[in-house]
Amino acid sequence: TEDARKEAKKIIDNGGSPDEAAKFIKKYGLSEDQARELVKRAL
């Protein structure tokens, strides 16, 4: 979702790792793979 993508970008912009961002956005109901893909797109 757009919200999850924004959250991921915010985490990374604040110095978080892509892994942290992926873990965080899994709470939106995404699978591990979906979360990682979304983080990649957010970069």
Rank of each mutant, 00 (worst) to 15 (best):
R41D: 09
K6R: 14
L38R: 00
A21C: 15
A35K: 00
V39L: 11
S31G: 05
A8Y: 08
K9W: 13
R41A: 13
R41Q: 14
F24S: 10
K40Y: 14
R36V: 09
G15A: 02
K27D: 01
I12T: 03
S17R: 03
L43K: 03
L43A: 06
I11P: 02
Y28S: 00
L30R: 00
D13I: 08
P18L: 14
T1S: 11
R5F: 15
E7N: 06
A8S: 03
K6H: 08
F24M: 12
E20N: 04
E37R: 08
R5Y: 15
D13H: 08
K23T: 10
S17V: 06
R36H: 08
K6A: 12
P18I: 13
G15Y: 04
V39R: 04
E2A: 11
R36S: 06
S17P: 05
L43Q: 07
D19F: 11
G15F: 06
K40F: 14
A42V: 15
R5S: 09
I11E: 01
E32A: 08
P18R: 06
A4T: 03
K26D: 01
A21S: 03
K23W: 12
L38A: 05
E32W: 13
F24K: 07
D33A: 12
E32G: 03
K40P: 01
I12N: 02
D13Y: 08
K10W: 13
Y28G: 00
Q34H: 03
E2N: 09
E20G: 01
E37T: 07
D3F: 14
D33Q: 11
D19K: 07
S17T: 13
R41V: 09
L38H: 00
I11Y: 08
A22W: 12
S31Y: 00
I25E: 01
A35M: 06
A22I: 15
E7D: 13
T1A: 12
G15M: 04
K6G: 06
S17E: 04
D33S: 11
A21M: 14
I12V: 05
R36G: 03
K9D: 02
S17M: 04
R36E: 06
G15Q: 04
P18C: 15
K27F: 04
D13K: 11
D33I: 09
G29T: 01
F24R: 09
K9P: 02
D13F: 11
G29D: 02
K10A: 11
K26H: 07
R41H: 10
G16R: 06
L43Y: 07
A35Q: 01
E7Y: 10
N14R: 13
D3R: 14
A4V: 07
I12K: 03
G15P: 02
K23P: 01
S17A: 05
K6F: 10
V39K: 00
T1Y: 15
E20L: 08
S31V: 01
P18N: 04
K26N: 04
I11K: 02
R41M: 14
G29R: 01
Q34N: 02
R5W: 15
A21W: 15
I25D: 00
G15S: 03
D13G: 07
D33T: 11
K10I: 07
V39S: 02
A42P: 01
E32D: 13
E32S: 07
A22D: 02
K9G: 04
L30I: 07
E32C: 09
F24C: 15
Y28A: 00
I25V: 07
K27H: 04
E2Q: 09
E2D: 11
I12W: 05
K23V: 09
A21K: 03
R41I: 12
G15H: 06
I11S: 02
I25L: 15
D3M: 15
L38C: 11
D19I: 07
L30W: 02
E7P: 02
A8W: 11
K6W: 11
I11L: 06
E37G: 02
L38I: 15
E37A: 11
L30Y: 08
E37I: 07
G16E: 03
S31K: 00
A4Y: 09
K23R: 12
D13N: 09
A42G: 04
G29E: 01
K23L: 12
R36L: 10
A4W: 12
S31M: 03
A8M: 08
P18E: 11
E32R: 02
G15R: 03
T1H: 14
A35Y: 09
I11W: 07
D19P: 00
Q34W: 05
R5M: 15
E7F: 09
E7R: 06
L38T: 03
R41C: 15
D13R: 11
R36N: 08
A21L: 15
Q34G: 02
A35P: 00
G29S: 02
E37F: 02
N14V: 05
L38N: 00
D13A: 13
I25W: 08
G16Q: 05
A42F: 14
D33K: 10
G15I: 05
L43W: 09
A4M: 12
K40S: 11
E20K: 03
I25M: 10
A35S: 03
E7H: 08
T1C: 15
E32Q: 06
F24L: 11
K9C: 14
A42T: 11
A21N: 03
A8T: 03
T1N: 12
R36Y: 12
I25F: 07
D3H: 13
Y28W: 07
F24E: 10
K40I: 13
D33Y: 10
G29Q: 02
R36F: 09
A4R: 03
K23F: 10
E2I: 10
G29N: 06
S31T: 13
A35G: 01
A4Q: 03
D19S: 10
Q34C: 14
R5L: 15
R41Y: 11
I11N: 03
D33P: 05
P18H: 06
A4K: 04
D33C: 13
E37V: 05
S17I: 05
V39F: 11
E2P: 09
I11G: 01
L43C: 11
D3E: 14
E2V: 11
G16A: 06
L38S: 00
L30F: 11
K40Q: 13
G16V: 04
G15T: 04
R36K: 10
S31E: 02
G16S: 05
A21Q: 02
S31Q: 02
N14M: 12
L38Y: 05
P18A: 12
K6V: 10
E2Y: 08
K26S: 11
N14T: 07
T1V: 14
L30V: 04
D33G: 06
A21P: 01
R5H: 10
K26L: 15
T1M: 15
L30D: 00
R41S: 12
E2M: 11
K40A: 13
K40L: 14
K6E: 10
D19Q: 10
I25H: 02
E7V: 12
K10D: 07
A21F: 15
A42W: 14
L38P: 00
A35T: 04
G16T: 03
A21E: 03
S17K: 04
F24Y: 13
E20S: 05
D3T: 13
Q34R: 03
D19M: 09
I11T: 02
T1E: 12
A42Q: 07
D19A: 11
A35D: 00
D3N: 12
A35R: 00
A42I: 15
K10P: 01
G29F: 05
G29M: 04
P18Y: 09
T1D: 11
K10V: 06
Y28K: 00
I12P: 03
G29H: 03
P18M: 12
K9Q: 10
E37D: 08
F24G: 07
I25K: 03
F24V: 10
K23D: 13
L38E: 02
I11D: 01
R36A: 08
Y28F: 13
E20Y: 11
A8G: 05
E37Y: 03
G29I: 02
N14I: 06
E20R: 05
P18Q: 07
G29V: 01
K9E: 06
D13P: 03
A4D: 01
K27G: 05
L30A: 00
K10H: 09
D3A: 14
L30P: 00
S17W: 07
Q34T: 06
Y28R: 00
L38Q: 02
S31N: 10
E7T: 09
L30K: 00
K26R: 14
K26T: 15
K6C: 14
A35H: 01
K9F: 09
D19T: 09
I25N: 01
E20D: 13
K27S: 06
T1W: 15
K9M: 14
I11M: 05
D3I: 14
S31F: 00
K27W: 05
K27M: 08
G16Y: 08
E20I: 05
E20T: 05
K23I: 12
K9T: 05
I25P: 00
K6I: 12
D19E: 14
R36Q: 09
L38G: 00
L43T: 05
G15L: 04
L30E: 00
V39Q: 01
N14Q: 12
A8P: 02
I11R: 04
K10L: 10
A42C: 13
F24Q: 10
A8R: 03
E32H: 05
N14W: 07
E20W: 10
A4E: 01
V39M: 06
A42K: 04
I11Q: 03
